[in-house]
Every structure is written in structure tokens, then in C-alpha cells.
């Protein structure tokens, strides 16, 4: 009994009295686990970067090769996020609003990019969009061999990178939009109609503003995931230094070559980016709470 009393003191300090057990055990375990797996490794990566002179680090993260890789990673991820913004919305809308045969199946398949190992997706996409693959053959035929070589190739190219990043990003947009569309009360659409708005006006003026934060959240998540993606991209990317390398690939090759401080510097840049994505997402979620009028989630 005295044990229980003394152990309840720490959280009384935080204005939270409870008879539930296990506070110290569960929180302690969580903190140790998170420290060992996340905080310490991350701290040592950052420390490694700071043991180098700043000018040297700066030179590493702004080298031509690094800059070219940022442009490809961010550019292709951005385009992929936009494509997913359009098709992800249509898929979410159709899955929530319409009844059609195979709807449940289609709904389940949307998660395929989550479930399929990235390397498996990578080799499959590389074959499918390669010159002899089903889709690659069509494109090759449609644009002709010269245009294919000149930059229209769907594999071994930056177009291929965009295709792979679109593949892995799709579920983020669909799964973020679906619950919001489900919760959207039909009342406001009916009210808009009664006030004389056509369906098109209702869509742009009522539905889009209500789901915009979730829409942007989904696209941000797809973008953030795409920038860090590795396995599904490297097989379909050309990997040409200075033109066809995504940033994770540059990190990987420099690491293989034993250039640890170079890899660490680029890794730190990507870590900063990951934090930025987290910040943007939490801001978008706060906005979403205001728009939908619900404090939860």
C-alpha cells in the first residue's frame, strides 16, 4: 500500500492522479528503447558531421553531385506527389462515394505499395517500364526510338524515378483523404444546393476547402516518403552520376566507397528534411482541426 502511495507522487506533480499501474515501467522502457534506437544513433550522426570543419561539410553538401541529386530527389518527388494528389483524390472519392462491383477489392489493393517490399516493387517496375516490358514497349513504340533515347525512356531514366515514387506515394494520399471524406457531412452539400449552388460550385467552394488540409497532408506525406525512398527507385533509375542519382543513392555509394564523413553530411541534410516534413504535417493537422471543427486527431 505504501508503495502505491509513494509511486503516485511523481505524476501528481503533473496534475494527473490515477490509480492505473505501470507508469514508471512503461515510460521507462519506452524512453530507454527510443534513446538507444533513435536518439543516440542520430546524435552520433550529427556529432560526426560537427567534428569536421564547417567549411568542409558545406563543400560536401553543396557539391555539384549533391545538388544534382537534391534536384532529382525533390523534383521527382514533387511531381509524384502532384500526380498522386490528382489520382489519389479521385480514388478516395470513388471509394467513399460510389458503389460499384469490386469496390472492397480496389480498396484493399490501394495498400499494395505499403505491403510490397520496396526491392520487389523496384525490380518489377524496372521490367514493366523497361524497353521490353509491357508498358515500356508501348511508350517506346509511341514516341519512337530516338525520342526514347533522348529522354522519354520510362526506365533507366528520371521519368522512371518519378514513376517509382508515384507508386510508393499513392496510399498516403488515399488513406489520408478517405476518413475526411467519410466524415464530411452531406448536410453542407445539401445546404449549398438549396442556396442555389450547382454541383460544380459546391465541389470547389464547399468540399475542396473542407478537405484541403487533409489533401495537402496526404501529398506532403507522399512527398516526404518519396524523398527518402531507396529500394523501389534504384532499379529503375539510371544512376548516372550528376544526372540520375537520387540523394539516398549518393549516400549509399559514398558509404560503399568508405567516404563516411561525406555520407554523414548528406545524411544530416536528409534528417533535417525529415524533421521539416514532421513539422509541416503537424501544422497541417492543426489547420485540419480548425477547418473540420473537431479538436480530435
Amino acid at each position: 500500500m505504501s508503495d502505491a502511495v509513494s509511486s503516485s507522487i511523481p505524476y501528481r506533480r503533473f496534475g494527473n492522479r490515477t490509480i492505473l499501474p505501470g507508469f514508471h515501467l512503461s515510460l521507462g522502457y519506452t524512453l530507454i528503447y527510443v534513446s538507444l534506437l533513435v536518439l543516440i544513433p542520430m546524435a552520433f550522426l550529427v556529432a560526426k558531421v560537427f567534428t569536421e570543419p564547417f567549411a568542409a561539410t558545406w563543400a560536401k553538401i553543396t557539391s555539384d553531385r549533391a545538388i544534382a541529386s537534391y534536384m532529382l530527389s525533390f523534383g521527382a518527388s514533387g511531381i509524384a506527389a502532384l500526380i498522386n494528389g490528382v489520382f489519389g483524390f479521385i480514388i478516395a472519392w470513388v471509394l467513399v462515394r460510389y458503389e460499384f462491383p469490386g469496390r472492397r477489392f480496389a480498396d484493399a489493393v490501394v495498400d499494395l505499395p505499403f505491403a510490397l517490399p520496396t526491392a520487389v516493387a523496384g525490380i518489377s517496375l524496372a521490367v514493366l517500364y523497361g524497353k521490353n516490358g509491357t508498358f515500356g514497349e508501348w511508350v517506346h513504340w509511341a514516341v519512337g526510338p530516338e525520342a526514347w533515347r533522348a529522354g522519354w525512356a520510362t526506365a533507366n531514366s528520371n521519368i522512371g524515378v518519378t514513376i517509382a515514387l508515384t507508386f510508393i506515394g499513392l496510399p498516403f494520399v488515399v488513406r489520408t483523404l478517405q476518413p475526411v471524406l467519410e466524415d464530411l457531412s452531406t448536410d453542407i452539400e445539401e445546404a449549398a444546393a438549396c442556396l442555389g449552388a450547382t454541383r460544380w460550385q459546391t465541389f470547389w467552394r464547399i468540399i475542396v476547402p473542407a478537405i484541403l488540409p487533409a489533401w495537402l497532408t496526404g501529398m506532403t506525406l507522399a512527398f516526404g516518403r518519396a524523398v527518402g525512398e531507396f529500394g523501389s527507385v534504384i532499379f529503375i533509375a539510371s544512376g548516372v552520376i550528376g544526372r540520375g542519382e537520387i540523394t539516398p543513392l549518393v549516400i549509399y555509394t559514398t558509404l560503399e566507397e568508405g567516404l563516411y564523413s561525406q555520407a554523414a553530411a548528406l545524411g544530416a541534410v536528409m534528417l533535417v528534411f525529415s524533421f521539416l516534413i514532421l513539422v509541416v504535417v503537424s501544422l497541417l493537422q492543426a489547420w485540419n482541426g480548425r477547418v473540420t471543427g473537431s479538436a480530435s486527431v
Binding site: D187, E190, A191, C194, G196, A210, G293
Partner: peptide
């Protein structure tokens, strides 16, 4: 006629106000 052509003023039980406006 569709609802948007009828010009009937409807006040919903839930009010259905546009939260973002």
C-alpha cells in the same frame, strides 16, 4: 427541378454552416 433550381430556403437541424467561411 433539382434542389439548386428551386430557391427554397432550408434551415437544417444541424444548421450545416460552412465551417471554413
Amino acid at each position: 427541378r433539382d434542389a439548386y433550381e428551386r430557391r427554397a430556403g432550408f434551415v437544417f437541424q444541424s444548421y450545416a454552416l460552412f465551417q471554413h467561411m
